[in-house]
Design a protein around this nucleic acid. Structure first.
Lengths: 70, 70
DNA sequence: ACATTATGTTATATAAACCGAACATTTAAT
DNA sequence: ATTAAATGTTCGGTTTATATAACATAATGT
């Protein structure tokens, strides 16, 4: 299962979902979906997000094995 | 532009595209497309690839700004 | 020479990411 | 209390990731 710290880091930098979306060229809905964990963004977007949030992809996104991984 | 070291690391570990595909649950064609840089995999797949290739996502995939970034 | 295995490549199909717009709810400011 | 900004959420659409299958070629082994 994919987890992430986008919401936490976005808050830390005082960015709105719209702000962050503009920085990485996606809509605020896309940011919202990612924060909710509703889908797995492309690595390109993940890299852009990490850059905007001044971290790296490994710290932003990770896989957690809880119970069911195929 | 998205770059990666999948082909290089796969060779280093003596894995075929099929082998790697099986390890991360995609087809060999998907691995081939990624190696050719023809698309940007999901972060979930990128994380699995990094794990299989004993590295981290940052070292496996990166963005290179050559001329045109939108 | 023949068989097998790995890779390159292309075509069609499906699933998932992402957009744009809309409307509702929450939060913050005045 | 009212307004505005931020977020939640949903819907119908387009684009892209990924699957499956097929065929071709190169490399390897016998």
């Amino acid at each position: 299962m994919l987890k992430n710290r986008v919401k936490e880091l976005r808050a830390r930098y005082g960015l709105t979902q719209s702000d962050l979306g503009k920085q990485v060229d996606v809509t605020r809905q896309t940011i919202a979906f990612i924060e909710k964990g509703e889908f797995s963004p492309s690595i390109t977007l993940a890299l852009k997000l990490a850059k905007s949030l001044q971290t790296n992809v490994n710290e932003l996104f990770w896989l957690e094995e809880d119970g069911n991984e195929k």
